[in-house]
Design a protein around this nucleic acid. Structure first.
Lengths: 343, 343
DNA sequence: CTGTTAGCGCCTTCAA
DNA sequence: TTGAAGGCGCTAACAG
């Protein structure tokens, strides 16, 4: 019977169905999933939505999923610092058989387990900015190295020679990648790397402040004229430390961040930074996941009439790993207005 | 049969079930919802997650829902400016019978329709900062007026007499409420309201900048010494305009915002603002929704054994409308460090 | 092509 | 108490 309509003799049921379809009839998704052995739900496994870039990502996901007949079910793992392996949670999720596929944002240590799920033909797409994809699992990431390279090169182009870098935690791959990009740019310009100008932070403003102060305490001839922070949040700390010392940004010290947090455009001075295309990544990831899920459907999504034979069920092919470009957003904090970026 | 376990003769089925239960057996949510005529999914209808405060809210929601056996299904309506009535979408959502209840964040014009759903015994909880609740529908909002009152009074306490206010769009109730709070504080201090010191913005930095410039253009004796912006974003614009004029914040002009965006603590100067307890609101709302949903379940959530009679199905009672307090967060931008707030 | 039937995995009721 | 049967709303595979 359809929805909760009152029972009628079976003879007229079909007719009723037809009529209802012509009006706006909405089938019960749960029942349809059950019967069709195929859920219309996609799971999204995300870390705290309060991370600055996750909402932007989910905007892309929501848009794509919203344009289909699928619905999004949100598994928001509010892990304190995202260190724990959430394989148990993932197993529970898969166990409920609610979702036809899983989109995992910044999976961290669970990536391995998700890759295994994928290899068992459960549709999985990973989004991360790390860059160490498990073998064969669909994976969308950001080209951190090139992003950092461009940021640093931009500072060099502005005449800076003593450029400091505040790394993220070294346990994260991204931190290394951004550091390598920084080195690349110095190399290209023939500027020797000065270890005194590289420090490790933890992505938060306080460590940005601490590292900046350490740089400011260097003897004048070793002191940097520009700081490239591994995250916008650390750049906030740098700016704050500079102001407290009476140093003007960008007049006395140029600052560049990484992430392009929503607020970074609106600060004073507006922060030059490297934008990661999270919205686009969300879109791409969702599209990939939908493709995987569809490939697994009986009849491959075609009506059961056409003579077209279903493709060999495991159509897990095509674009597997995507590396998205990060782009430099030039604003006031680096002291260059050679490109007027009004946002 | 349970999950997709291979078929066995009916005799041993039950035994298998028992054993599986002792191990970690995870029932199929869709099937259980179908059979039990009760879904274990809660719908969350949210505007763009990229609004600064929605993620914080969803953190609360996610935490509460995650601690139950319910799952969250996310209906993210990326409406351009949240004006459209989404009743059609809501009908589709309810029509799928997927969710047992609906949590609507900033429902805007759809609030009326949601209230009607509620009156038809479909569990609905609204979260809004507006303050015009439809009759009887569970509704959680923020006390904007008192928040604005405290912000303004704080400025008065610092010695300011000429305090400007930048309103949000007047089509929003919040804008009026915050304005009223501002007036309350002036009244209390016996400061006459000066219409030249009140302007309407649209919650974004550019209008903050525009309005601030208008204030700065006033003749010296009419010029404000403090500006209370109706949103943090507008406060960013104010700060930016001030800097461009060579005015120091808070030295020359004190600035207070409203919202406490995540970045507001990290700017230079850190922004004094009014925090809305969105995390807590998310929690409360989820708890209310869960209560409503449970009240509707057959047997009222008790096992079908106990002699306890189910409560009369419509147990829609208890806390219906909640107004949460907003709290002043004092930071550097208002020039008062009488409370050292390090964040 | 339309019509019918048999479940999907689970809950609930009734019988033992 | 325990167990078997019926059905939730729908789809898919089969008949006509």
């Amino acid at each position: 019977m359809l929805n909760q309509k009152p029972d009628v003799d079976l003879a007229t049921r079909e007719r009723i169905l037809r009529i209802m379809e012509e009006q706006g009839f909405v089938p019960n998704i749960a029942a349809s999933g059950l019967a069709g052995r195929h859920s219309r739900l996609l799971g999204a496994l995300v870390p705290s939505l309060t991370w600055p870039l996750v909402p932007e990502l989910m905007r892309g996901v929501g848009e794509v999923v919203g344009s289909t007949s699928y619905e999004l079910i949100l598994y928001s793992i509010n892990d304190v610092n995202h260190e724990k392996d959430r394989s148990d949670v993932i197993d529970r999720i898969v166990g409920t058989r609610l979702a036809a596929g899983l989109l995992a944002v910044f999976p961290g240590p669970s990536a391995k387990h998700l890759a295994e799920l994928h290899s068992r033909d459960f549709p999985v797409v990973l989004i991360d900015d790390q860059g160490i994809p498990p073998e064969g699992t669909p994976w969308i990431s950001v080209d951190n190295r090139v992003g950092a390279f461009e940021a640093t090169r931009h500072l060099i182009g502005l005449g800076h020679r003593r450029i400091a870098h505040i790394q993220g935690p070294l346990k994260y791959q991204v931190s290394h990648e951004r550091y390598l990009g920084y080195c690349d740019a110095l190399n290209e310009a023939g500027i020797p790397l000065d270890p005194a100008l590289v420090r490790e932070g933890d992505f938060t403003p306080p460590t940005g402040r601490t590292c900046a102060n350490a740089f400011f305490d260097l003897p004048a001839e070793k002191r940097p004229t520009a700081i490239f922070a591994g995250s916008d949040y650390m750049a906030y700390g740098v700016i704050s430390a500079a102001e407290q010392r009476g140093l003007r940004v960008p007049g006395d010290i140029a600052v560049v961040g990484f992430d392009d947090n929503p607020a970074s455009a609106h600060m004073e001075p507006a922060l030059t930074t490297v934008r990661q295309p999270f919205y686009e990544m969300g879109r791409r990831a969702s599209e990939m996941l939908l493709a995987l899920v569809d490939a697994l459907r009986p009849m491959n999504g075609l009506n059961n009439n056409g003579r077209v034979p279903g493709v060999p069920s495991s159509n897990f092919s095509e674009p597997i790993r995507i590396k998205m470009p990060a782009s430099l957003i030039v604003r006031a904090s680096c002291g260059a207005s050679h490109r007027a970026t009004i946002e």
